Simulated scan of single mutants.
Amino acid sequence: MARLRYFLIAVFLLAVLAGLVAGGYAWYKTWQEEQFLATAPETPGREVLFRVEPGQLFTTIAANLKNEGLITNTHFFARLAVRRGKGSSARAGVFRLSTGWVPERILEELTSSAGVMHRVSVREGLTWWQTARVLEEAGMGDADGFAEAVADPKLLAAYGITARDAEGYLFPETYLLTPPKENPARLMAEVMLKEFFRNARKVWPGGLPDFEEMQRTVILASLIEKETGDTSERARISGVFHNRLRRGMLIQCDPTIIYGLGPDFDGNLRKSDLTNRENPYNTYVHRGLPPGPICSPGLDSLLAAVHPEQHAYLYFVARGDGSHHFSRTLEEHNQAVRKFQLDRNRKTYRSTKD
């Protein structure tokens, strides 16, 4: 009987001890987690550029954070994310984090911020090779990679472009995006093509035309873009081109010749360039539109190409203040050329409005 009593006492004491150990362990883990939440891994902290790939599991993200020294415990970090309802909210991108931040701030940055974004401004009227240089300078890939992308048959086919390259369809815009780890130049080409077709629906709200009609519009819009220094004149200049094409007249557009001379054009348009029949973009000798766009036009030029101003003008010449003088007859045009070009004040002459 005494043995049984001792046995029961021993069992009781072991149970109490086990309870104390379990309670102590639970308290210790709670204390550990509280310390984890309240303490940054390093003081002072250091900046870390941290990348989250699309579709990456949260457990992988937490493990990568620990490897970078941004958190000290993956389990506690996952528990924090679950409690905050953000276990599946991490965004893909590149984030500028710090080892001096507490876990709550790390989680907030990964789930609420846009991350490190590159701002790339591509203005209207650039050729694809000028755009390539802009992107390279902005850190969005190299120019050679962009050149390869804009002429990639697979990429062009994906957007229904049956031309030799994407000239004209690289939509001018200010883009905010995170450069991918690999081939950012191709990403930019795709993003700009998507933006073109998004805007094209504003030009053709009833539905996009077939590529032949779209290409003709983009070519004409590119001429309007390059010839317009005063944005209010786009529809009027479009009307001039429409009138000349309707009458079978030569377009006689200097920017088309310049485009045909390519990236090495030195800025000096010579008389021999105006008579060169070898240049397929020479609209002084070849009738109709040039074989392709000469730049990427903006939305306003695309709209002007589709909706030209109705008038009888056949000529225009730059006034030297960014605007143009429009003429109905060759005689009137020649007088305007003498006034605004031959007798111009070279010190005050400018091609665009302030």
Rank of each mutant, 00 (worst) to 15 (best):
L245D: 04
P44M: 00
K202Q: 14
Q56F: 13
H325E: 09
A151M: 09
H325R: 07
A189P: 15
H333Y: 02
L156R: 09
G145A: 14
G115V: 14
I224V: 13
R83I: 01
M214L: 10
A147H: 10
K353Q: 09
R3N: 08
G125S: 02
T43R: 09
F211L: 03
W31K: 11
Q215M: 10
K29S: 08
P54I: 01
D165M: 06
A336Y: 04
L220T: 00
P209I: 07
A221R: 03
N183D: 15
R186L: 08
R186M: 12
V134Y: 11
Y25D: 03
D254C: 02
T60F: 12
K202D: 06
R105D: 10
A92Q: 07
G298Y: 05
D254P: 03
D152F: 14
G207H: 02
I61A: 14
E225A: 11
L177S: 06
S323L: 11
N64D: 12
D266E: 04
E33Q: 10
G239S: 06
E33Y: 04
A63R: 15
L299P: 00
M188D: 05
V122E: 10
F241D: 02
L110F: 14
G23H: 10
G229N: 15
E233V: 07
R287T: 04
W204D: 04
V21H: 08
Y28S: 14
D144Q: 14
S222G: 09
L126H: 03
L156E: 03
P54S: 11
R3G: 12
W129H: 13
G260W: 04
F50A: 09
N334C: 03
I219P: 02
D321A: 02
E190F: 13
S88P: 09
V218A: 03
D343H: 05
S301A: 13
R201H: 07
G87R: 07
V122G: 07
P179A: 06
L14N: 01
R328S: 07
L80Y: 06
V306E: 15
R246M: 09
R164G: 13
Y169G: 01
A15F: 14
V203Q: 12
R328D: 08
W31F: 06
V240I: 03
G115D: 15
E332A: 13
D300G: 05
A92L: 05
K271L: 05
V317A: 09
Y175Q: 07
G298M: 07
A40D: 08
M1S: 14
E109S: 14
L135E: 04
E212F: 07
E227C: 02
R319Q: 15
I237N: 01
T39G: 13
R5K: 13
P41R: 12
F95R: 03
Y315A: 03
D343Y: 00
D144L: 12
W101P: 01
W101N: 11
T39H: 11
N276T: 08
Y25N: 10
W27H: 08
G100Y: 08
R46C: 10
P179K: 02
A26V: 14
Q341M: 11
